[in-house]
Design a protein around this nucleic acid. Structure first.
Ligand SMILES: NC(=O)c1ccc[n+]([C@@H]2O[C@H](COP(=O)([O-])OP(=O)(O)OC[C@H]3O[C@@H](n4cnc5c(N)ncnc54)[C@H](O)[C@@H]3O)[C@@H](O)[C@H]2O)c1
Ligand SMILES: NC(=O)c1ccc[n+]([C@@H]2O[C@H](COP(=O)([O-])OP(=O)(O)OC[C@H]3O[C@@H](n4cnc5c(N)ncnc54)[C@H](O)[C@@H]3O)[C@@H](O)[C@H]2O)c1
Lengths: 220, 220
DNA sequence: TCCTTATCGAGAATTTTATATCGAGAAAAA
DNA sequence: TTTTTCTCGATATAAAATTCTCGATAAGGA
């Protein structure tokens, strides 16, 4: 990947649209790997997912892999390259705050390790939940969050508390030295510079759907 | 014919980035409404959410409302305008397929009505779940899906089954006449033209976070 | 009344992202 | 071997999205 230095261009940050497409390639590639295929072309991926082949090639280029004419990309290598690029090969320990219905669902979802995430502890302010474990992850009191985050050098915090409690949860996570927050609460978190926030707000996705549907229906 | 149609159509489709930002404005606006404020400027919204003021104005323009110099936009009107635009004022009946941990969490989330969505029935192939209700939504057998969707004229289907079952679920929903699918399974659904698919894949959001975090840490 | 200030909204400019074109190279077929 | 076919990847072009500029206008004083 140092090969890109030959042009001496300044390294540009990966576009977010590209980052969002990479997992989709990954899902398809893993499926293809099962079928025994050895290589795949950008043309094929594009047709399968409804993208433009050039776009697929450009996206793949960011991960640092090179293909070969006529055959395309080696599937195993490409999977590895994307996972490496997204840092999904190093499993990162994470805290989850708010063990309600969504938080519980996430703790129960065994596949996050495939995406580089490992929940080592969950936190809640509900006395009934503290001390129990949810799918093998212990639920601890909020009082323990800051110290434990510091001690364990946790980098990622997931927020699944109600909106009114989200900012406070974020503040605690940041006090504990967290670097990145995956926020599911429908609220804009205020964080100091250097702390990453990714909003996984379902309402954003839903807005696209409902607006387009209303638009489509109105054209009937 | 199509040419004149095109030139006559002055209404351009709303950019997806705009659609995704609108719910974020909405959350802030509802908060401001509680505080008793009557109006808000694009400048304020932008500063609060970290956007550009012009972008906020352009986004708002799509919803059809006009502001006034010096004061900005009437908060109540603006909320109404956005909700109308996203079609969140007309509650749309929806089916949910797959009552596992994520599906259950969604059925239990009482706020989807605020976003125009009402789950009238859920479906699963697990005999243990059929016949029960989850947060007042009945869980029915998959056999009943197609007919019931037709009879009730359901437009939206939510897929929360494992990846391997997602395409089949989508096929049934489409057979039942559904127009839009909100897909949570990590797979690309193949659907006929005219059927909308919105992927709410958490992994896409997570990819952005993990890549940026790795990037930031590597720069320390 | 006049002045200052904050804001909208239209259009231009810029940046970012997506798509088209095409030469070169590898594989398969002739 | 030679030809055909397919794909990569570099570059060019187009489209989309964002940001800048600025005149007009309303509100709140001076
Ligand atoms: N459930 C869904 O399908 C869904 C969908 C979209 C968005 N969300 C959002 O995700 C978040 C969680 O939703 P949910 O349905 O799981 O809610 P929930 O009410 O089921 O769970 C919230 C949890 O947070 C805990 N909590 C409350 N205040 C706290 C505090 N100050 N400190 C620590 N813990 C606290 C509660 O004890 C509870 O366990 C909400 O912000 C919601 O808007 C949920
Ligand atoms: N739980 C999470 O936090 C999470 C996170 C990211 C993505 N997802 C995705 O969401 C989907 C659901 O996840 P989950 O954790 O709720 O899974 P789950 O295993 O808890 O639930 C799946 C449900 O689907 C039902 N089902 C299975 N096959 C079916 C079929 N053919 N027809 C009808 N119903 C069927 C099962 O009976 C079960 O109730 C998966 O695709 C998963 O990848 C979940």
């Amino acid at each position: 990947m140092t090969k890109t230095e030959k042009t001496n261009k300044k390294i540009k940050a990966t576009p977010e649209p590209t980052l969002r497409r990479l997992p989709r390639y990954l899902h398809l590639l893993k499926f293809l790997r099962e079928t025994g295929d050895k290589s795949v072309s950008s043309t094929y991926i594009a047709k399968e997912l409804g993208f433009d082949p050039t776009q697929v090639r450009k996206d793949i280029e960011y991960t640092g892999i090179v293909g070969r004419p006529k055959t395309g990309f080696n599937i195993v290598e490409l999977i590895s390259s994307i996972e490496e690029f997204l840092n999904w090969k190093n499993i990162t320990d994470a805290f989850l705050v708010g063990t309600g219905s969504l938080g519980t669902a996430m703790l129960g979802y065994g596949r996050f390790k495939d995406y580089g995430l490992n929940f080592v502890a969950a936190f809640d302010n509900n006395e009934m939940k503290i001390g129990k474990t949810i799918h093998e992850t212990p639920v601890l009191s909020m009082e323990k969050l800051v110290d434990l985050a510091k001690r364990m050098h946790i980098n990622i915090g997931v927020i699944t508390v109600p909106a009114f409690a989200a900012q406070h949860s974020a503040d605690l996570l940041i006090e504990g030295g967290i670097r990145a927050i995956w926020n599911f609460a429908p609220i804009h978190l205020k964080v100091p510079e250097g702390v990453l926030v990714e909003n996984a707000q379902l309402t954003q996705s839903l807005a696209v759907l409902t607006h387009k549907l209303a638009d489509a229906i109105s054209k009937d």
